[in-house]
């Protein structure tokens, strides 16, 4: 049952989270930044489920379900904010938001 060791899950989670944070910093497009956030959330889910299969528990899977639900909320609110920003300011890149249009 438990052939894949815990370290493999943790290394995959580390690499996926690093790529997510990297994308959050490097991308200019706001929607791409949100998608990189989804990558980081998935990395946390992989760590939870891998720890579960190592420990023989299911609590981490329940927290993974909570993270999936909260990721849906985050996508809804974030994309709503992006659409509102685009409608009000006509910008879609994250560097053009730094100036205050008083």
């Amino acid at each position: 049952m438990k052939i894949v060791p815990l370290e493999a899950y943790l290394i995959l989670s580390l690499l996926l989270f690093g790529l997510g944070v990297f994308g959050m910093i490097v991308r200019r497009n706001l929607v791409a930044v949100l998608m990189s956030t989804e990558l980081a959330l998935n990395a946390v889910n992989v760590a939870f489920v891998g720890a579960d299969s190592h420990l023989g528990l299911v609590d981490g899977q329940i927290f993974a379900l909570f993270i999936i639900a909260l990721a849906a909320v985050e996508a809804a609110v974030g994309l709503g904010i992006i659409v509102a920003i685009f409608r009000l300011r006509k910008v879609e890149s994250s560097d053009e938001l730094t100036d205050m249009g008083g």
Binding site: L12, N45, V46, G50, D52, Q61, L65, I68, A71, A75
Partner: peptide, 26 residues
């Protein structure tokens, strides 16, 4: 990967919620 780890419910919900609902929303 969730299916490999033996978490069938989380894998199925990942497919249903993430890969369908959130992707379509984007």
């Amino acid at each position: 990967i969730f299916f490999v780890a033996g978490a069938e419910l989380v894998g199925a919900l990942q497919l249903l919620i993430y890969a369908v609902a959130i992707a379509v929303f984007y």
